[in-house]
């Protein structure tokens, strides 16, 4: 086990590489997911305020081009 983690003496370099990669990829994913969630929440709130009839009209008029 200890031998596996030492990576033939290169452990620091190998594990830092993998650790850094994991951190960067996970942070980017989580930030992206959170941003989507909060934008969707805002959208749902606004949509409720506008009302379904007006939403329908807007979607057929110009909503799709945005």
């Amino acid at each position: 086990m200890a031998e596996f983690f030492s990576m033939g003496g290169y452990g620091t370099y190998v594990w830092t590489s993998y650790g850094l990669t994991a951190v960067v990829l996970v942070v980017l994913l989580v930030v992206s997911l959170k941003s989507l969630k909060s934008t969707e929440t805002t959208f749902d709130r606004l949509r409720a305020a506008v009302g379904p009839k007006e939403m329908k009209r807007m979607e057929t008029a110009n909503g799709d081009e945005a």
């Binding site: 941003s35 989507l36 969707e40 110009n62 945005a66």
Partner: peptide, 15 residues
């Protein structure tokens, strides 16, 4: 995920 966010943000702007 990011495209969905961006498109939803566009809709929010219009609203």
């Amino acid at each position: 995920v990011r495209i969905r966010q961006e498109l939803t943000a566009n809709k929010v702007r219009i609203l």
